[in-house]
Nucleic acid binder design. Structure first.
Lengths: 320, 320
DNA sequence: GGTCAGCGGTCACTTTCTGACCGCATTGCG
DNA sequence: CGCAATGCGGTCAGAAAGTGACCGCTGACC
């Protein structure tokens, strides 16, 4: 406990939780002399973590942003928040960082004490902004189990429901997780079928790591994402939405500007453009504006609005 | 660099990124003998991080979940994912962890190199699931700046637009950030007005930490959240939604089950209940079901559906 | 100018760290 | 069964650090 490395970690942790510390205070907390503290600070600096110091009456130490990321020292609550947030990221809330999100999630979950896992589990039900229509809901347990197995070259068993509806157990050597559109796929070598396959994560149930490790094979295709794309029948449709809205651009921007492209046409009219794979979103957006509008594209949106409009009207004016 | 503490951190990092490592391999990577590696592993164990070891031909070391969280060693991409995810969490994606999310966000952002901050900034535009109507969009910069100032007892300057629309600069001693409903408030002691105030974060612009620290005062109310509640004119309305949907419960559950409570009435009918502060959500949900339905509560939803229905129908059948 | 903060040099002493031995236990394979 | 690979832990001596107590210096703030 009275270790040097332990002290280095504790110092890092202190500097991360409260920005300013005076030398004597830190030295006291760490149970060393001020001189040794200075040496510890030097050590951190040598490790690449920039610790700024201010002299004078109000002086003290603080951790600044550096070139390298120091190890993050987080408490229980923060860890839960991280796990929950990474699930959201993995679901594709922000395009492009899904994979990094899963890696981070894996790291957090791997070292998380059971009590925290239970808390995350409890929150899971609440989380995940509703993802109508297209988006399959992803089980973070499945996600992290598979991610760990891929990372560690560990064989995997799971139940799988094929497109046709058949259920069967699989034994595979997992290779890579690939997010595509709003879905995740596992690229793996199927040990029963002796060939490479890709599996949709939302069709995988009860994955179990067998504990047996393997020597990674070479995927025939270089790129795992490409392999998945080649094997998929239907890529979820994406729509380009283009709507003329009878409202000033400034009125829509604060509400929708982050999410759709709004172009001013004239003082009373603007154009709303966006790309989406679920038409429910633009419908909601248009509803929220409270304005009249005309759909230019796509035809599917017109259909959908027709349907929704009719049902909404029937519901709002009940026959009774 | 050839430090003991540095090596401890590197070992921790290795164990976090790849689960299985054989002793000789680790020793090689760390540039020490196998004996010393064993001693390093022991050191980690003494620090409370459970390192499992397996003997035999296929042996190796792995980091297990323990009672305490080890410092997380993340790479650039993962850090970006964490920051982006924490923003989503702070926005209130999951009730209850907002504050922990902000703390974690603050920690990550604090130590993040500028290049990574720019990446996060670039992704910010894309992020934040659209939050129609009620939710103000929160600037993560503002959020983290304020959070750091609160944490570090540092005076703060910022521009503020009052409810009436007046703009003025403020100089305050920040006390606490409070999430309430879907909004964030800063509780602070206003140094011009010589009194405690609460400020809505979405009305704060350009916060600057002055660098001057202060001795925390006592807030007259014990609880900062209570103080905010007392000072707010209007708490955003929340609605209890209760709808009868003419579709089997099993059909709705996979789509909406995570988000609303679905009760079966009979084979062809079910009841959908939820609580929300933005009626656009249940409207979208009901639209997505594709089913007929009757609204029992609230009256406001009926109104909204009437409006949307009319506009949707007009848009879908253009006069031309 | 005084005070308080951090900075860094030196020195002697103590602690630890390290690698090279050793024999042992466990596991998987042939 | 024996063999090989792996982890475990003891011991030892030399090397390397870490440590606290000095010291005088610089910089910031009152």
């Amino acid at each position: 406990m009275a270790n040097t490395s332990s002290r280095t970690l504790r110092l890092l942790s202190l500097l991360q939780t409260h920005r300013f510390w005076s030398g004597p205070e830190l030295a006291d907390r760490l149970g060393v002399s001020a001189r040794t503290l200075r040496r510890d600070v030097d050590r951190l600096r040598e490790l690449g973590y920039p610790v700024d110091a201010h002299r004078g009456a109000e002086g003290g130490y603080q951790l600044a942003a550096g070139a390298a990321l120091p190890p993050l020292v987080v408490d229980d609550d923060e860890a839960v928040a991280l796990a929950v947030g990474m699930q959201a990221v993995a679901q594709g809330a922000v395009p492009g960082v899904e994979e990094a999100g899963v890696r981070a999630l894996t790291k957090v979950v791997q070292v998380m004490p059971p009590r925290l896992r239970r808390r995350v589990e409890a929150l899971r039900a609440v989380t995940t902004a509703p993802t109508w229509g297209t988006a399959p809901v992803l089980d973070p347990d499945v996600l992290t189990t598979l991610a760990q197995a891929c990372r560690d070259d560990e064989r995997l068993e799971f139940g799988y429901t094929t497109y046709a509806g058949d259920q069967a157990g699989r034994l595979v050597e997992p290779h890579r997780l690939v997010p595509l559109g709003r879905r995740w796929y596992l690229v793996a070598y199927d040990l029963h079928r002796h060939d490479w396959r890709s599996f949709r994560l939302d069709r995988i149930t009860e994955p179990r790591r067998t504990g047996a490790r393997f020597l990674p094979r070479r995927l025939p295709t270089d790129d795992a994402a490409q392999f998945v794309r080649a094997g998929i029948r239907s890529i979820p449709a994406t729509y380009r939405v283009d709507v003329l809205v009878h409202a000033p651009a400034e009125r829509l921007r604060p509400q929708l500007g982050r999410w759709a492209e709004i172009t001013e046409v004239d003082a009373e009219t603007c154009e709303l453009r966006m790309t989406t794979d679920a038409l429910a979103w633009p419908a909601m957006a248009l509803g929220s504006t409270g304005a009249e509008f005309e759909v230019r594209e796509p035809a599917e949106l017109v259909e959908l609005l027709q349907d929704w409009g009719a049902r909404f009207t029937r519901a709002a004016v009940p026959s009774e």
